[in-house]
Design a protein around this nucleic acid. Structure first.
Length: 263
DNA sequence: ATGGCCAATTTTATTGGA
């Protein structure tokens, strides 16, 4: 199963780019973040015409997550189950081919001093509590924009980010607590070296100068990590006219090697 | 070549993104 994730920075602005990319890459699943639109204005037909069903959790102006799948998708859940309605659309889950797939959009956090940063840390805490609550079977995949660079290797200039909401000690600690629930960063299973990024600032020639951050991640339960064949970042998709500021990320799994007893 | 912010709304400024 080929799984991808992409923060598209407005799905309506990116419809043609998304269609071309789906046709070229042929993923089975694509998790989307930052739809920036309500469910009723999500371009469903653009994806069903290519054979993808859409599970949508939209919101006006901000946030919004979705899962596109060309394999059957069941048990769609929006937000943190058991915690009531959340005003922000940042999490959606569905079961696909025996995998519990999540599209995740962690709050950015503004500045370290802001209320929004406290909200980001609390949200990561809720994500951890959610992982404790939901079953380990089917095995879980968390795909999305985590707004955290997990390691110094994941920033073009780590020394400049000590007081930044992407790399501050507290957000790294909050992210580590999530991963300690038994998740693995699929990209790092295959690529230990620095210099790979998934986001580049629109400003100041961020992309041409490769001043990027790796903040988009596909995190997999151990059982899934063991059958992860490859992982990559498609930086080609950051080029051209009207790109998202994020590149899509991918991971491929040999689900035939999933041991049901271990799941 | 990959090129000097972008997108939505509250729209001719403001907010959030990271």
């Amino acid at each position: 199963m080929k799984v991808a994730s992409w923060n598209v920075n407005s799905v309506r602005m990116r419809v043609e780019r998304l269609q071309a990319w789906l046709q070229a890459q042929q993923p089975d699943v694509l998790c989307l973040q930052e739809l920036k639109t309500v469910d009723a204005q999500f371009p469903t037909e653009a994806f069903t015409s290519l054979g993808y069903q859409a599970a949508i959790h939209g919101q006006k102006t901000y946030n919004g997550v979705a899962i596109l799948s060309r394999l059957p998708m069941t048990d769609v859940a929006r937000g943190f189950a058991g915690e009531g309605e959340t005003p922000e659309a940042r999490l959606i889950a569905a079961t696909i081919a025996g995998v519990r797939v999540h599209s995740v959009y962690v709050p950015n956090g503004g500045t370290v001093e802001s209320e929004r940063y406290a909200h980001k840390l609390a949200w990561l805490g809720r994500l951890g509590a959610y992982l404790d609550r939901v079953p380990r079977s089917p095995p879980r995949l968390l795909c999305g924009d985590f707004n955290v660079a997990p390691d110094e290797k994941d920033l073009y200039n780590p020394t400049a980010f000590d007081h930044d909401v992407i790399f501050h000690v507290d957000v790294r600690r909050a992210y580590a607590a999530v991963v300690e629930r038994g998740l693995r960063d699929t990209f790092r299973l295959h690529h230990p070296e620095p210099g790979h990024y998934s986001w580049w600032d629109y400003r100041m020639l961020g992309f041409p100068k490769n001043r990027g951050l790796r903040i988009d991640l596909i995190l997999a339960d151990e059982t899934l990590a063991r059958c992860c064949l490859s992982a990559s970042i498609d930086r080609e998709a950051r080029k051209g006219k009207q790109p998202s500021d994020h590149a899509p990320i991918l991971a491929e799994f040999d689900l035939g090697r999933l041991d049901p007893r271990a799941a």
